[in-house]
Design a binder for these strands. Structure first.
Lengths: 340, 340
DNA sequence: CTCCTTTAGGAAACCGCTTACCTCAATTAT
DNA sequence: ATAATTGAGGTAAGCGGTTTCCTAAAGGAG
């Protein structure tokens, strides 16, 4: 591997000059010298050593993406746009999969500090699936080591973040169902979702605003898996006065609802309307395809990169960007009057 | 950030001693000194700088995972096990998403060399979706720079690799359908799949072996998306003597087949049996759930790590590990005699 | 009481690159 | 004509570790 020294020697200049040429630093260099150096670098198949560069320069030009799951569409789609944007800006991205494991997350954070990443885009894992707390120490630790941080997936304090208005998402979904004529609307909440409370608030608000009022019997919660959706829906549908529509906190649970409906002999959307949160291939592929509240994945990724860049340019203020959801109508919702 | 110098000064020793203690190097150190250094390191909240370490030591303890897609279950599941295994062994993993873009892949390779990764687990992208060639230069470049490489997803020469016996997979799938009584079996091949030829060979072999023989009219190919599966299936089902079973080269296309069958008014598995390649949540969630040829994701990941470790331990030989597929029976296959 | 090993630790070169500070000649300004 | 700039490049001190030699004392063998 050729180094800057090899080039310097061959060109009869100092390494400083070579470094300047290679990096296009703002320092006068004779055009002829520049050409010669570039030429030699080419000949020697020179490739700057990123490690040495980071050590000397204090910047690694690497940012890390710390996410709870890499097998979940929601995250991977965000990842794709973040990675794309970041590459445009000359950054390399470390993709770190915490698998919702708090210790693993901490290990990653340590490792990222040791590796001197310039910034981290972070969707922290909740400490216990049951509650809503995340380990803020990790964010602190990163920041104390001079690493820029942008968070998403929940609401945090003292850090730049992307906040998705799931309150309004749930509100809109519920209102949509109401507009179709539904009066008994079930809600399957997500136990470990970071935005749990606000979703529920949106749901309740829509019911109250329309004068229907909130029936606690129609609210359950599951652990975001298909089976949970199935179980919760089964319970709801077994009530003596069952809902005519169900809103589920994510698409996996919504698919569980679909299965429960089928097992109960209910036609969707004929006898039951179903609406999910999150959009993904799954929602399109199931039969009937799912009407969902779509989160603005692309915008999340772009906003995250923008906030991070702001910080990397020295802006110390914490900014919060709020993004809205959008309803995507497919086949799973209909008019309740059709019901036998 | 505390450095090894700070510790050395505070402990009244040289940096050499500190380095030895921190790394547990095989060099005699008085127990008392060791304790003191460890103690001070703790107090100073010392965290070794991975960058400096890499530069000095020539090893980054990082390996890269270069894959065509991060939104594809097939790859992400492999990633999870690789990352897990690698972490156990003390390696950090860079996850690089090439998005099936050859230039991007090359850029990544350059960057990985500059970053001095110790090894790469690589599923190369085909140069043109249509043909079966990959850019072997990238593998070469990596190896020339002393980076260990393990490849998977196709068949390569001159590199350690995991080879999945899709020939046998297709053979088994076809034979399974034959054993159910099917005589007209359609095949939807994948245009850009790395294992295209062998799949087709397996399909043909099974047909010939059973005496049914191969009818070229029953073979088409699509670009691995749902729409392609739909289109191909629609064509097959519109033949005057349509197939009673269809084998698709991946699960997305198999789902497309399901949709086409529905639109054609055919019941699956009553009137048409469908079998897909690759297993994923999708296959379980669709209705009817898909019978598939499952690739041994976990084993692929484990084998890849093992091969890589072999190389990192100095073993220069190229090894190939062949892994077998397995059929997972669900609801989409049945007996053809039931057909009206 | 020597001579050889071990044990414990230090000095400093090196990894490849950046950058603050210099130098010196050629211009330009006054 | 002299001082002040500017252009072009060099010197060398880091960045934070690792590692190869060394040294010196203590223990053991003969």
């Amino acid at each position: 591997m050729a180094t800057i020294y090899d080039i310097a020697k061959k060109a009869g200049v100092s390494t400083a000059t070579v470094s300047r040429v290679i990096n296009g630093v703002n320092h006068p260099i004779k055009e002829e010298t520049r050409q010669r150096i570039l030429q030699i670098a080419q000949e020697l198949n020179y490739r700057p050593n990123a490690i040495a560069k980071s050590l000397a320069g204090g910047k690694s030009h690497t940012i890390a993406l710390l996410i709870p799951s890499i097998t979940n569409d929601f995250y991977t789609q965000i990842c794709e746009v973040i990675e794309e944007k970041l590459e445009e800006k000359g950054y390399h991205t470390y993709l770190c999969n915490t698998r919702r494991n708090v210790e693993k997350e901490s290990r990653y954070v340590e490792s990222l500090i040791a590796r001197q990443v310039d910034g981290v885009i972070f969707s922290p894992t909740r400490v216990k699936p049951q509650d809503n707390q995340v380990n803020l120490d990790n964010i602190d630790k990163l920041r104390k080591n001079g690493i820029a941080v942008v968070a998403f997936g929940s609401q945090f304090k003292g850090v730049s973040q992307i906040y998705i208005n799931t309150y309004k998402g749930a509100f809109d979904a519920t209102r949509y169902l109401i507009s179709l004529g539904h009066k008994r609307i079930g809600f399957i909440d997500g136990l470990s979702a970071g935005t749990r409370k606000s979703r529920r608030r949106g749901y309740i608000k829509a019911l109250e605003e329309s004068g229907i009022g909130f029936d606690p019997w129609l609210v359950t919660a599951g652990n975001l898996q298909m089976e949970d959706g199935y179980a919760c829906a089964y319970k709801l549908l077994s009530l003596e006065n069952p809902p005519t529509a169900i809103l589920a906190a994510n698409n996996l649970m919504a698919i569980g609802v679909l299965k429960a409906a089928r097992d109960k002999g209910l036609n969707v959307p004929g006898n039951l309307s179903v609406i999910g949160f999150d959009d993904s291939l799954l929602s399109k592929v199931v039969d009937p395809s799912l009407t969902v509240i779509k989160q603005p994945l692309k915008e999340i990724g772009e906003a995250a990169v923008n906030l991070l860049m702001n910080q990397l340019e020295g802006n110390q203020k914490h900014e919060t960007i709020q993004l809205e959801t959008r309803i995507v109508r497919r086949q799973s919702c209909g008019n309740p009057k059709e019901r036998g």
